[in-house]
Design a protein around this nucleic acid. Structure first.
Lengths: 337, 337
DNA sequence: GTCATTTCGTAGACCGTTATACGTAGAACA
DNA sequence: TGTTCTACGTATAACGGTCTACGAAATGAC
């Protein structure tokens, strides 16, 4: 483009020249490698800051570390994601690492190409948040680059670590809590995704079924699987049906907020006749008119945990760890008066 | 880490060997440069796909293009951002470009370091969404890398392009619309940020003042500047005050949603006595209980426009363009019955 | 048949780092 | 005094591409 000026860029050579030392010496200082005197280190550092030198990642990544990790998000709309990301970034910056984000738009093709991209850019490791990709593919990638997966259950993987909320446990806890108020016809609202054991939504279904059974409410088990797209339209039939259950537990606030909102608008008596509980405790759940009880899965903590695992993996760990993070239910008036 | 196997990586050399041609030949095919016979191109492509070769961005970026642009977001919470990002990504993928995202967390230091990072990774260009950085600094960066700024008014810049909603015009339109219902005591809710002419919030204030004055309502001009943090707490005094105006126009749904929500909860008669209008038309604004009128600034379009500008800039354009994108007001019951 | 021109392909310098393998001076030891 | 360490610096080969020169072959003009 604008090659007007000659070689304007400050490289390691410029610094070396300026400090009157060899390129290798500068490199050693940069990596704080062994065999550098304080005197030399100081001289080099002075030159570095005088010239405003910054090492080129491109060049760096051809041999060593980039000190950058890639974060892949399924999509951007789910309010749970920013929380996780902020947990990751806090932890990363403490370790003097940087991050590069990519958004998969809930499409496996795009996810694949983005992970490839991250490999191409020589990230030191990757954190995949709720990926759509199947375990086998994840393993394939994990063999090429240190990998931690968040919000995707794969407890038997030996190639990568996972961090999750205790989805089964949380769901059982919610069912028990709802039942404690004497409700028996407790239904679940989940999504109609090609069944994938790894999805958090599926794990929540498992917890629901397990606890309903344990409570002797097996006959009331009913899972409404809604379309992911056209959220509002998918919910309408639920709102309109004449025979309402005593409670809806939703796999995510994404659906719960619209459900409780449309329900209230349609004159449901909440919570006396119908209770609604969501998952993720998103900001909108706390609005006075919504006031949706929701399970808070501590995304910040999940992000931090994932980052710690990744960094230790980058440092050479090879055994797989699978962490479940505790959460708690935020009670609100959609559940209890 | 796992350097168990020797040189497993498929490089341009592997491909060259496999196809029985020179490295330069392969490179030419990759860049579809001049001077390649169909025969050779075919041979090389066969080898490439047989070996599953992918060029290393790291190596590539030391000389040529990375075919990747960096996107810098102020933060992640504002629901307007995903819309812009999706506009950008659609347009990018059409041009066979990739993107890398970074999140600035509304902090100039972090923003600076992230842009530096993008330079280090040799992005072909960057799109900055609502950056906090001042124009001078932006210009400094724009001289080093093709830059387009979105959601940040800097109409006189000659170093980079800008894409914005017509904030002044939109605000004037809203004020006129609100006044059409006979309301005169129209107040604005903005944020208490160190005044920066480039902020969209400031531009909206300008529009508000201008139109109020034009309508002869100068005596009613009043701007409530709230803290960005502790949103809910910042709003309470507004909700509690005894002397309410006839309308609040908010710089963003970020505040408007909480305001209309708390207002309704406090028994405001909306819209008969108090009208509330927001900006950005975020998903929660459409919830039945919120039903907030909000100006839709067509983020998708802004993203697409920004991307088109960036690509043309990467291709060598040097003059600066400043685009304003049209939007429209989504009317809802917070404004009109 | 010779010379100029175009087309195709190759050699090899180069980009900015890292990391290995050395060289050297001074200290410690005998 | 000679020998062995140790500590500190340096020279230089990678890393995996791009891209400028340049040579050889094919084509066209006369």
């Amino acid at each position: 483009m604008d090659n007007g000026t000659k070689s304007e860029r400050v490289t390691i050579r410029t610094v070396a020249q300026d400090a009157g030392v060899s390129v290798s010496a500068v490199s050693k200082v940069l990596r704080n490698a062994y065999g550098v005197s304080d005197e030399l280190r100081k001289r080099v550092n002075v030159s570095i800051s005088r010239l405003g030198y910054r090492p080129s990642m491109a060049a760096r990544s051809m041999r060593g570390r980039t000190h950058t990790v890639g974060i892949l998000l399924v999509e951007m709309e789910n309010p749970f994601l920013p929380v996780i990301v902020s947990g990751i970034m806090d932890e990363l910056s403490q370790a003097n690492y940087k991050s590069m984000l990519a958004v998969g738009r809930a499409d496996t093709m795009i996810e694949t190409s983005l992970i490839d991209s991250m490999l191409d850019f020589r990230m030191d490791g990757i954190i995949l948040v709720a990926p759509r990709l199947k375990g086998a593919l994840l393993s394939k990638y994990a063999k090429q680059i240190p990998t931690v997966v968040v919000g995707h259950h794969e407890p038997d993987s030996t190639d990568f670590d996972t961090v999750n909320g205790d989805d089964v446990g949380a769901m059982r806890q919610i069912v028990r809590r709802v039942h404690r108020d004497g409700r028996r016809r407790i239904e679940m609202v989940s999504i109609d995704r090609s069944t994938n054991d790894s999805d958090v939504s599926y794990q929540r279904e498992v917890g629901y079924v397990a606890e309903m059974t344990a409570l002797g409410l097996a006959e009331y088990i009913h899972i409404n699987r809604l379309s992911e797209q056209h959220k509002r339209e998918a919910i309408s039939p639920l709102v309109a049906r004449p025979d309402q259950p005593e409670a809806y537990i939703c796999w995510s606030d994404l659906h719960a907020i619209d459900l409780v909102s449309q329900g209230r608008a349609n004159g449901w008596r909440i919570p006396s006749e119908i209770a609604v509980v969501g998952f993720d405790d998103s900001p909108a759940a706390a609005l006075p008119q919504i006031d949706l009880a929701s399970y808070n899965h501590d995304g910040t903590r999940q992000g931090a945990e994932a980052t710690r695992l990744l960094l230790s993996r980058i440092d050479g760990r090879t055994d797989a760890r699978h962490v479940l993070v505790e959460g708690r239910l935020s009670e609100r008036s959609s559940l209890t008066a």
